[in-house]
């Protein structure tokens, strides 16, 4: 699109907006304040991140307070330090990926059949069960830490990556079940009925239908992955050996152990920790939204 076209387009939108404001001043005001809130929220979230990342690209020991927003020279020294002197790009990353992938697998294996069953079967007290599942998630996690610690110490799972995977999956499964149930609700019953009349058992019919829920499964997988990736309290409490650290715990070290916060290193490390999730979101954003919305099927 040429610059001219772009200008024409802007002019059109501007005219459209002013005409709308003239004709419906009330709704225009509502929209404008909505827009204002969103801009404010964006600045609120983006600014600290931007500051942290700009710190990452500054040469070490050049960050002052108040911070300068635009770095004078781009330097990758912080990243080199992180990569060479810490386990960030090595063990921690492997741990984080293992934990998150494991959580995704567990959540999908549990929530897919559960969501399907809630969507398709006439279960007694279905509504209560559905709400009960959500209630589980409403219990503050901190209240369960000590009992969980006792349980895992008895079972002998303390200081293993599996604990983080398990707890994170347990944390995500309720919402995942709801999401998948909601998505299956938008898939017409006729498809399984066609499969069943055609000779498929209930389970085979389920297997035929599952690929249709891909957008929802994708959204749930992303949600579970990010949920596990960001776990902080769980690994901090249940993990003691440094070789089993995951990213958030490792990031915490930049603040606590060295006394002074090394903003440059923290920024660089945060960026590395965020990158995989950021990439996933950018790549799968459309599918993520589609999975949350549900679809209209035309069979």
């Amino acid at each position: 699109m040429s610059v001219r076209d772009q200008l024409v387009r802007w002019r059109y939108h501007w005219h459209n907006a002013t005409r709308f404001a003239r004709d419906h001043p009330h709704s225009a005001l509502v929209r404008l304040s909505g827009l204002g809130i969103m801009v404010f929220a964006a600045i609120y979230f983006v600014l600290p991140l931007y500051w942290l990342f700009s710190a990452a690209f500054k040469a070490p020991r050049t960050i002052d307070y108040p911070p300068s927003l635009i770095p004078e020279a781009i330097s990758f020294e912080n990243f080199v330090t992180i990569a060479t002197e810490t386990q960030f790009v090595g063990q921690y990353m492997i741990n984080s990926v293992l934990v998150s992938t494991g959580a995704v697998v567990i959540v999908l294996v549990l929530a897919t059949p559960a969501g399907y069953a809630f969507s398709r079967y006439d279960i007694k007290y279905k509504q209560y069960l559905m709400v009960a599942i959500l209630f589980v998630q409403m219990i503050p996690f901190l209240a369960m830490i000590i009992p969980l610690y006792r349980i895992f110490s008895v079972v002998g799972l303390l200081d293993t990556l599996f604990v983080i995977t398990l707890l994170s999956a347990a944390n995500t499964t309720p919402v995942a079940t709801w999401l998948i149930k909601g998505y299956f609700d938008t898939v017409p019953d006729g498809l399984e009925e066609a499969a069943r009349v055609g000779g498929a058992s209930r389970f085979q019919a389920f297997r035929v239908i599952v690929p249709l829920a891909k957008p929802a499964l994708g959204a749930v997988a992303l949600y579970a992955f990010v949920g596990a990736w960001n776990q902080f309290i769980i690994p901090l409490t249940f993990i003691s050996s440094q070789s089993k650290w995951v990213f958030p715990v490792a990031l915490y070290e930049f603040i606590s152990l060295r006394g002074v916060v090394n903003w440059g290193l923290l920024g660089a490390a945060s960026l590395i920790a965020m990158l995989p999730v950021l990439v996933l979101f950018v790549v799968f954003q459309r599918q993520f939204v589609a999975g949350l919305k549900g679809t209209e099927f035309k069979g």
């Binding site: 009925e193 066609a194 069943r196 055609g198 000779g199 690929p211 099927f297 069979g299």
Partner: peptide, 20 residues
């Protein structure tokens, strides 16, 4: 007898073809 063992075929109003 469940539907799959009845040897009856059904055509649906919505066609119910597997879109994938």
């Amino acid at each position: 007898v469940p539907a799959r063992k009845r040897d009856v075929a059904l055509v649906f109003q919505s066609f119910a073809l597997f879109p994938h």
